[in-house]
Simulated assay, not measured.
Amino acid sequence: MTSTPDTTLPPDVRVGVIGVGQMGADHVERLTARIKGARVSVVDDYVRETAEKVAATAPGCRVAESWQELVAADDVDAVLIASPGRFHREQATACIEAGKPVLCEKPLAMNPEDAYSVVEAEQASGGRYVSLGFMRRFDREYAELKDAIDAGELGEISILNCKHRNAHTLPGFVDSMMVYDSSVHEVDAIHYFLEEPIVAVQAVLPVPGPRADGGQHDPMLLLFRTESGRIVTDELYVNTDAGYEVRTEVLGSRGIATIGTGSGRVTTHLEGARWGGAIPPDFRPRFLDAYDAEVQAWVAAVRDGSHVADRSATAWDGYLAAAACEATETALTSDGFVPVTTRPRP
């Protein structure tokens, strides 16, 4: 069924952006320079100087006195949240209550209980308002792999092998942040590819690498078990000093597919940061097109009144990710598999 465009909206969807640090500023630049059918009308940041600097890069944009003012503003049709995760629950709920579509960067909330409250708020509203910023769902390779799985091209899927590597992290990037900031993307990828919940997780902590920060366990290996018994491995290595790499390998009864290798073989070397091939320094070059596609699809969904694009992660996906991450954090100090506990979907 095709949605009817919301003719009450102006020609360009007026987007308010909450939080304009690195990620938020990237989104403002994206909406201003590359996204069709939208413009940034209002921004907010707890550092006023930062907000004013970013607002100056978007024609016709103003700075709000608070995020609450931004959500309620008449010149804001939809909201993009890029503030720190501890504010997401309250801000996303406010957008739902204001009847404004929201694209919220992950996480939806810092714990399953808060994430579930957002799901309940959306359910109570009678509408669909929340899109969650798991941009990999809009990556070309991820989309192609998802389509191959759904079409049965690979047969029965038994194992997913995931790898998530960063060149380095900022000081204080502790084990729990490896879960909530890094592994959370693989957690959502499991739900996206397999369309079934994670029921248990185990952590294996090798000897820390030479660049591990303080008590950080880096590299780290996580094992996830899904409802049907499939196993997913997630290798995290966030201080490789060799660039940013994200790979996924799917083992099926009729074939094996791998994404994220780039063109040809790539060999990395820690000493001297030498490599053969091209490895981006961080996540932005690797997923630039995915972010653009995600935001463009969101704007189109806001325009046609559906509010949530077909491939987008929802508030429920955010809750499932929060539940899996909570269990994963427990697994860091536990032996064997830790169960993932979830509540029924409202």
Rank of each mutant, 00 (worst) to 15 (best):
A109Y: 08
P219K: 04
P10I: 03
L154K: 03
D114V: 02
D44H: 15
P84N: 14
L194W: 10
S183N: 15
S176Q: 14
S3V: 02
Y237C: 10
P112C: 11
A38V: 05
Y237T: 06
Q91Y: 11
R225M: 04
M178H: 07
S312F: 01
V266Y: 05
S117G: 09
Y129Q: 07
F193Q: 00
T330V: 13
T342G: 02
H164T: 10
V232L: 10
T330A: 15
I35E: 00
S41V: 03
E195R: 14
P5G: 06
D12R: 13
F134N: 06
T4N: 10
A109M: 11
W316Q: 10
A322C: 09
A189F: 06
R62C: 02
I190D: 00
S176N: 11
A109T: 12
S176W: 04
H27E: 06
V71T: 15
D150V: 01
T32H: 07
Y237W: 15
P285T: 09
P346L: 00
D317P: 01
A56G: 12
I231M: 10
R136W: 04
S306D: 05
A51R: 06
K53L: 09
A143L: 08
A200K: 08
I149D: 02
R140S: 06
G209P: 01
G85Y: 11
S263K: 13
A109V: 15
T314V: 01
A203Y: 00
R14I: 02
G262K: 05
I198W: 03
Q296A: 12
E90K: 12
E196M: 04
